[in-house]
């Protein structure tokens, strides 16, 4: 199974740098905890803001962590080697996206309930938040891979990746945070979950192809 081998390699190499894995997580917590200072420590107001704040922070943390998973491999030439040996750029992009999600997306989902507590999010909404993040963050990783692969050869590409990718993140953000909002008002949110699942599946099928193509272009 080539995918499993690629994934193992991805996790072994990216996981070696513990700091790079932890920093997005700390960023996520830090950004979220700034909002009580900026707005108000009032529980009702915070609960109202919480879905949007947590979702935007998760989105930015995903975006920030992208670089660690691609830039190193690109600079030391191992990306080119991998492209030659695996033969399928899409498979490589998929493995990278899965590795990225396992090492940053999943921890974000696990930390999110703690932030929900800090922002006084009701329990029902907590469940909704974990579910929407569980479906949404993999889509963010997959879409982000396209932007990252397109800009590999460019120095200081961080801000450019944001410009390319943030507009594409809007649907995930809309359905993710509105699902949490609906849950905190006691409304059903299965529609939002279904739409997020649809986006996730679409991204799973299409994004690795585009990202793989981008990888080929960037390494040529």
């Amino acid at each position: 199974m080539r995918l499993a081998a690629l994934l193992r390699r991805e996790i072994a190499i990216a996981g070696r740098n513990k700091a790079a894995i932890l920093i997005p997580l700390v960023f996520f917590v830090l950004v979220t905890s700034l909002f009580p200072f900026a707005v108000s420590p009032d529980a009702d107001q915070l609960a109202l803001l919480a879905p949007g704040v947590i979702w935007v922070a998760a989105l930015l943390a995903t975006l920030l962590s992208l670089e660690h998973f691609y830039q190193g491999d690109y600079l030391d030439g191992s990306l080119e080697q991998l492209l030659l040996t695996t033969g399928s750029p899409a498979l490589l992009a998929l493995a990278k996206s899965i590795g990225h999600w396992l090492l940053t997306g999943l921890p974000l989902v696990l930390v999110a309930p703690m932030l929900g507590l800090l922002l006084h999010l009701p329990l029902d909404a907590q469940v909704a938040m974990v579910l929407t993040l569980l479906l949404g963050t993999p889509a963010l990783c997959l879409i982000g891979a396209i932007g990252m692969c397109l800009t590999l050869g460019i120095n200081r590409n961080g801000i450019l990746v944001s410009l390319l990718i943030l507009p594409l993140y809007i649907p995930v953000l809309i359905f993710g945070s509105s699902g949490v909002q609906a849950a905190s008002l006691g409304l059903p949110y299965d529609g939002q979950l279904a739409l997020l699942a649809a986006i996730f599946i679409l991204a799973l099928v299409l994004a690795p192809v585009a990202a793989g193509h981008a990888l080929k272009i960037s390494t040529s």
Partner: peptide
Amino acid sequence: AAAVLAIVGVVNLPIIHFSV
């Protein structure tokens, strides 16, 4: 690279429009 981005954008535009 820009061509790939344009195609990704055109696939996403209807999704973005629908979600908005």
